[in-house]
Amino acid sequence: MDNEKIPIQERKLYPFFFMVFLTAIFVAILGLLFHSSEQKIKDQEVLAYQTQMVNIFADTLSTVIHVNKEELLSPTKVAQAFSTYYKKSTKPLTYYTVEANGMLLGYCFDISGSGLWGTMNGFVGMTPDLNRIVNFTIYQQQETPGLGARVSESWFKKQFHDKILRLNGKVLTYSLVPEEATPATQEIKQITGATITSSSVSKMLFNEMNRIIPLIESQHVNAKSAGLK
């Protein structure tokens, strides 16, 4: 029969079965690998999320509960710190109340806004009177590495520490000043070469906090008038 003289590679259906077989092997290997690491990757994401949130109030927390800040943020302790001191509320929106030793330390909000290339997500911690930022950090962004992505650098985050966000009942819109300048109350330092990303941060803070603060305050007013506080 002619078939026997043709080498296996040239037979008609061989390429098809070859590809199917090859694909099956590799997909199986990848599937195994993925499932074995899936849980760990998820746990890491949760841990990173919690660590960032605890970081917002870490300074105040460590003073109030007399625990070293580094110890508070260590991977073994941070989950416990999160569940102990951060109380989640879902009405009228999802936010966290930070309390320790009977003292209200502030509130923590998960905010988002449009960056240059995608959504930016950040945590902003506010003082109990909702006038000052305790700390602010961007935990997720898709900005240009080396430019807009520098929003995650410590110098950018530090400028929001203890910064006035609300003056005389009105949320401020921060204007941008160069990276080398010292910003006034209504200003923030921008990232050199990343003006759009920097103004996105300012817009995000304004839009989100302008929306959130009235909701929180009206809820507390309602709670008070209902005699719950």
């Binding site: 449009s114 240059l116 290339w117 003006t195 759009i196 996105s200 817009k203």
Partner: peptide, 8 residues
């Protein structure tokens, strides 16, 4: 060109 299109 950056800035002529406001990607916001």
């Amino acid at each position: 060109f950056s800035g002529i299109v406001n990607v916001q």
